[in-house]
């Protein structure tokens, strides 16, 4: 498997498995956190803005 002899070797990363995978875990967490907050903020905005718009339209008529 690439540079490593086996998948187990890859997971072990010599004696540095813990450090490498902990770093990549933090990387993934932050990437996902950024992506998810963007989507949630967008949905929340549209939900509130739509409601507000509808309320104003019923008040107008």
């Amino acid at each position: 498997m690439g540079y490593f002899a086996s998948f187990a070797d890859f997971l072990q990363m010599g004696k540095h498995g813990l450090y490498v995978w902990l770093s990549y875990g933090i990387f993934l967490t932050i990437i996902i956190y950024n992506s998810v907050t963007v989507i949630i903020n967008k949905r929340l905005f549209f939900k509130n803005a739509k409601r507000q718009l509808r309320r104003e339209q019923t008040n107008d008529s």
Binding site: G2, Y3, F10, M13, G14, Y19, V20, S23, Y24, F27
Partner: peptide, 27 residues
């Protein structure tokens, strides 16, 4: 990520811990 984690050779001094470079330096 695949290139850095799976295919790049290890560092002769730091071993595999050097693979952290692929997220540390860009960030």
């Amino acid at each position: 990520l695949t290139w850095g984690l799976v295919f790049a050779p290890e560092d002769y001094q730091q071993g595999n811990s050097f693979r952290i470079i692929y997220i540390h330096v860009p960030s």
